[in-house]
Design a binder for these strands. Structure first.
Length: 464
DNA sequence: AAACAGTGCGCG
DNA sequence: AAAGCGCGCACTGTTT
């Protein structure tokens, strides 16, 4: 494998980016050490309490009988053996890892529907929060500040990575978990934490590559909504019947997976499971399962690559949705994928819009995805460099303190907030497309701002 | 004790 | 024909 910046611009971006990120690293983000200590304490108490309650269950008794002194509740391998070898629960082929061991992740274990297991998963999640996040942050905090490292030389796609600790995977999707961790990140006195992110930057960059007119239309016309439309197709709904949750399901269970190279077989399962997990319904409360039944689809189907999807199954329906998706709706995108991959096969290399050449052995999905993931981050990096330089030149008190692929986190003095938001918006949405003419769709950003002295958890959207 | 593979889970 | 992209970190269980 050989990856290198081939153009001078590409080299310069990494050079300047490296220096800007060194600044970010030295600035650091303020940690509320009292809050952190308190959260570790309450989390430990909850772990103790739940663990004590769990010890009374049948599963736990069997576990201790089987493993005796070496019983370790942290071992999911042991749990798998207890459940599947001693308690008679069935482990299907699809629920095994590639090495043939029974899977013991949340998705698989939840399906067993055993009260103990649900409690167990809750405890494990609390342990994860305490070990990786709370204690991880505590260990790395110096004099009340955390200085995560950001690197540009470790990622195959020329994105960045972050470590010690990783600032790019702090919980947010599960509300109580996000709160537990993010309340520990606070603004400096008289400052506010400000996070500005590019909206749908990967979709925008992909549109710049394949120039699919339907996709460009979706980006430019605010009345159009790709995820809403696909929710309509996947669940056979009229536009008005699409709820926020069914849109969410289509976005993360169909549209993005398809863009990244997944296929109907897995999408169907995920969309189907989401009906139950997210309680997807029609506006009148009817379950989408029931709704699909009325449309002649009463089961998922085996989703087995070896078996051809049968009529009347959800699997078959999603296969048809996929065909329309790639052969009608986004056929220009589809053509680009084929052409781009063929050119790679011919030459053994491809070059990103930002001037980085990648050569060596890659799979089809890699070749399609890298030139989107990389340049999408480069938009952010280019902007971060300019914003950081501007803050330095104007000798402002505000500082950039972190970056998460498509967003910039800054600790902004309350008197500089307006200027900061204005300049960030200008650099990110106006100067960048001028500097890089290959960007042919409008770029947008969103800003989240915390109260003065508030925490990262308290951030609220603010119009620029 | 240190290194390694395998798993699982957090994020974009 | 093949069948989601990219990371870092903690932990278990085994090997060196």
């Amino acid at each position: 494998m050989k990856c290198r910046p081939t153009t001078k611009d590409a080299y310069q971006l990494l050079h300047d980016g490296c220096m800007a990120l060194a600044d970010v690293e030295s600035h650091g983000i303020k940690i509320d050490l009292v809050q952190l200590e308190r959260n570790i304490y309450t989390t430990s108490k909850r772990i103790e309490k739940l663990t004590a309650r769990n010890t009374k269950s049948d599963v736990c008794k069997t576990w201790k009988k089987v493993f005796g002194r070496s019983t370790n509740f942290g071992s999911r391998t042991q749990l798998g053996e207890v459940l599947f070898s001693h308690m008679g629960y069935e482990c299907k082929d699809e629920d095994r890892t590639k090495t043939g061991r029974p899977k013991a992740d949340e998705e698989t274990l939840s399906k067993l529907d055993i009260p103990f297991v649900q409690q167990y998963l809750k405890v494990e999640r609390l342990k994860k929060a305490r070990a990786t996040y709370l204690r991880g942050i505590q260990k790395a905090t110096m004099d009340g500040f955390l200085h995560p490292v950001f690197s540009l030389h470790l990622v195959r796609t020329y994105r960045s990575s972050s470590e010690a600790p990783n600032f790019q995977n702090i919980p947010i999707r599960i509300p109580w978990l996000g709160k537990l961790i993010r309340t520990c990140f606070i603004a400096r006195p008289h400052h506010q934490l400000v996070e500005i992110d590019y909206s749908g930057i990967e979709v925008c960059v992909s549109a710049c590559m394949h120039k699919d007119p339907r996709m460009i239309e979706y980006i430019k016309d605010p009345t159009k909504d790709m995820h809403r439309d696909m929710a309509g197709e996947c669940y056979i709904l009229r536009t008005k019947q699409v709820s926020k949750d069914s849109r969410f399901s289509a976005k993360n269970g169909f549209v993005f997976p398809e863009f990244y190279g997944d296929w109907f077989n897995r999408c169907a399962r995920s969309l189907w499971d989401n009906i139950t997990n997210l309680h997807l319904t029609l506006p009148d409360g009817t379950s989408l399962r029931e709704h699909l039944k009325n449309k002649g689809i009463n089961r998922l189907g085996p989703c087995d690559p070896k078996e051809k999807p049968r009529p009347g199954t959800f699997e078959k329906h999603i296969q048809e949705v996929e065909n329309r998706f790639w052969n009608e709706r986004f056929r220009v995108y589809n053509q680009w994928k084929q052409d781009w991959f063929r050119e790679y096969q011919r030459t053994g290399r491809f070059t990103m819009a930002t001037g980085f050449t990648v050569e060596g052995w890659y799979g089809k999905n890699d070749v399609i995805n890298y030139p989107i993931q990389g340049p999408a981050f480069h938009c952010l990096l280019w902007s971060l460099i300019r914003l950081n330089n501007w803050l330095k030149k104007k000798r402002m008190r505000s500082r950039i303190v972190g970056q998460i692929h498509d967003s910039i986190v800054a600790d902004v003095h309350k008197n500089e907030l307006e200027d900061y938001l204005h300049m960030a918006n200008k650099i990110m949405t106006q100067r960048l497309p001028k500097a890089w003419p290959w960007i042919i769709v409008p770029l947008e950003v969103e800003a989240d701002v915390s109260p003065v002295g508030g925490s990262w958890y308290d951030k609220k959207e603010m119009k620029i």
